[in-house]
Nucleic acid binder design. Structure first.
Ligand code: SF4
Ligand code: SF4
Lengths: 168, 168
DNA sequence: GTTATTCGGACATTTAATATCCGAATAATG
DNA sequence: CATTATTCGGATATTAAATGTCCGAATAAC
C-alpha cells in the first residue's frame, strides 16, 4: 500500500505551474531541475498528467507544460488518479468461489461485506483528497513561507518561464 | 497504490477463525485449502498476523492458529496494518529541500500542506476500516448466506477443526 | 526418547515501480 | 518554404517489491 513517488513529484510540478501567469509554461527539464529529480522520470509523470487532461503540452522550441484548467478545478485526487490509475487499491479475487465450500458464480451477484468495507474506506480517502485543490495549496504556501523564499522563487521563475505558443 | 493480496487472504482466514468455538483452531494448510490459495504463502500471512498479536499459534502435532482476542476487538485495519505495515502510503521525500530554491532543513520543522492533506486522507481511510470488526463481518455473513451454504461450512469445519492445546 | 506434525524464517521467482534513452512532432528562424 | 534547434512522446533497461516456495527448528503426542 505505497503511493508512487511520481505522485509527489506531479503534485509539486502542478503547484508550480499554478503559480504561473496565464498563458505561460515551463518545460519538463526546468521542473525537474527545480525539484532536484531525474529529468526523464519527471517527464514521464507530466506525460501522465497530459493524458489525463490536467496539463496542456506544447512541443518544439519554446514548448513546455501549463495547466489545462483553473487551479480551483484540480484536486489532489485528480493528480493521484492520473499517476496511479483509477482502479481500486483492494483487489478482490473472488476467492469465495474457490475451495471445497466455494460459492457458485450465480450467488456472487453483489460484493461481500469485506469488499464493501474496503470500498467504503477508499471512498473516504478519495473524498478527502478531492476536497483539496491546487488553489488551496498555493494559498497556503504563500501564507506559510518566508517573504525571502517567495522572492527567490519569483526570481527563478523569471529566468525559466516560457511564453508558450497559444495553439497547442 | 495497491493493497497486497495477502490482506484479502488474511481477512478471510481471520473471519473463518472467528467462527470457531473457544479454544479450537485451524492449521495453515486447512485455511489455505479452504480458500484455494497456495499453502506456503497463506502461512506467511498467518505468520504476520501472529507477530502482530492478532492470532495465537501452536506448533507440533494438533497445532494450528486461533484468534488471540475477541472478534469484536479485531478491526479490518488491524489486519491490514499487520500485513502491509504501519507506515504512511504517501512517502514525502522532502524535495522542497532540493534544487536551486531549496529550503534549509531548519525551515522544514513541520510538514507542508501537501503532506498534511495526504496524511489526513489516510487517516480517513484508517478510521473507516477501524470501524469494521470481524464480529461485524461474521454477523453479516450469517445474515446474507443461504442456509444451505452455512451448513456446508459447518460440515467442513467439523472435519478440519483441531482441538488446540491450551498452552501456546 | 522417538516420531510425526506444524510453525518459523530463509530462499527463489515473478511483477511492478523506477530510471533512462532515442525517435516523432512542432515552432522559430532565415 | 526548407532547415534546424528544441521539446514532448512512447519504447526500452534497471532496480525494488510483491509473490510464491522451500527446508530446518520447535512442539506435542506416543
Ligand atoms: S473480499 Fe468478499 S467479494 Fe472478495 S473474495 Fe473475499 S468474500 Fe469474495
Ligand atoms: S510534500 Fe510537502 S513536505 Fe513533502 S517534499 Fe513536498 S513540500 Fe516537502
Amino acid at each position: 500500500m505505497q503511493i508512487s513517488k511520481g505522485v509527489e513529484w506531479a503534485v509539486h510540478a502542478a503547484s508550480m505551474m499554478a503559480a504561473l501567469p496565464e498563458g505561460r509554461g515551463l518545460k519538463a527539464a526546468a521542473l525537474a531541475h527545480y525539484h532536484g529529480v531525474p529529468t526523464a522520470y519527471m517527464a514521464k509523470q507530466l506525460q501522465a498528467l497530459s493524458k489525463a487532461g490536467i496539463v496542456q503540452s506544447s512541443r518544439g522550441a519554446h514548448g513546455g507544460y501549463r495547466l489545462a484548467k483553473p487551479a480551483t478545478d484540480i484536486s489532489l485526487w485528480d493528480i493521484t488518479a492520473a499517476i496511479e490509475g483509477h482502479g481500486p487499491a483492494f483487489r478482490c479475487t473472488e476467492i469465495r468461489q474457490n475451495g471445497p465450500c466455494g460459492l457458485k458464480r450465480k450467488d456472487c451477484k453483489r460484493p461481500c461485506q469485506i469488499a464493501a468495507a474496503f470500498s467504503s474506506a477508499e471512498r473516504a480517502f478519495r473524498d478527502s483528497l478531492k476536497a483539496v485543490t491546487l488553489a488551496h495549496i498555493g494559498l497556503q504556501v504563500v501564507r506559510d513561507s518566508e517573504p525571502e523564499h517567495l522572492s527567490d522563487i519569483m526570481h527563478w521563475l523569471e529566468s525559466e518561464v516560457m511564453p508558450l505558443s497559444d495553439t497547442p
